[in-house]
């Protein structure tokens, strides 16, 4: 299977499972709705970026729970290993499809978030760009953990425990962006840092993930 055909295949699969694909988005919206209920309205604008990022972090990690499970259990992965295209290129395609299916909807939910938390549009744009820069490395980091814990009984909670501490830099750099923007400072430095992390993880991540999957099915 060539990478491009595999990409189409992954997208079709996700489209067929759209009811399941919507679940992390529901989770995202429900958790976002909890904070305005418990915090006074005047605190919400200052909490907004952190709440958005932590909620996005959790819902993305939730979506990764079943990323490789079925492929490992029904032997599809062993089949992929036999295809002439390198496994890492196929995994890169799978992750791209995953990002489109699970992370892109978060951006579409952003206007609603802005409405709930009274975030002005220009701040929403900054938040959106921080998400765009941070989520690729987050997804890849989580996918490494998903590959290592694929096929384990406690896989879901392990995925969280492994990824969350390692994800702190992504969280902190993203919130630095929104923080500096809110104070009228130039936020190019943390933005470039996140971009660098995204590039490094996009180029090395698929290799690490395919090696991790090989360990998991060995």
């Amino acid at each position: 299977m060539t990478p491009s055909r595999y990409f189409i295949f992954c997208l079709r699969l996700l489209l067929r499972q759209r009811r399941e694909v919507a679940l992390p988005l529901f989770f995202f919206l429900i958790v976002l709705s909890l904070f305005p209920m418990v915090f006074p309205a005047k605190d919400l604008p200052s909490l907004a970026p952190a709440v958005l990022w932590i909620t996005a972090l959790l819902s993305i990690l939730l979506s990764l729970n079943n990323l490789f499970r079925e492929d490992v259990e029904d032997g599809f992965l062993t089949q992929l290993l036999l295809s002439p295209a390198p496994l890492s290129s196929l995994i890169a395609m799978k992750l791209l499809a995953h990002w489109i299916a699970y992370v892109l909807p978060l951006f579409i939910a952003l206007p609603l978030f802005g409405l709930w938390y009274r975030v002005p549009t220009e701040n929403l744009l900054v938040l959106a760009s921080s998400l765009a820069l941070g989520t690729p490395s987050l997804l890849i980091l989580g996918a490494i953990a998903a590959a290592l814990s694929a096929g384990l009984k406690q896989g879901g909670i392990l995925l969280m425990l492994i990824t969350l501490p390692l994800a702190t830099p992504i969280l902190l750099f993203s919130l630095t962006i929104t923080d500096m923007a809110a104070n009228g400072l130039s936020y190019t430095a943390p933005a470039y840092f996140l971009l660098a992390m995204a590039i490094v993880s996009a180029s090395l991540g698929p290799l690490v993930i395919s090696a991790s999957l090989r360990i998991s099915i060995s």
Binding site: I144, A145, L148, P165, T168, L172, M197, V208, S212
Partner: peptide, 18 residues
């Protein structure tokens, strides 16, 4: 070992970001 290596790449970044 895979996780340890990923962590060791990440630890300096964590320190820096914090």
């Amino acid at each position: 070992s895979m996780l340890t290596v990923v962590g060791s790449i990440n630890l300096p970044i964590i320190k820096f970001s914090v």
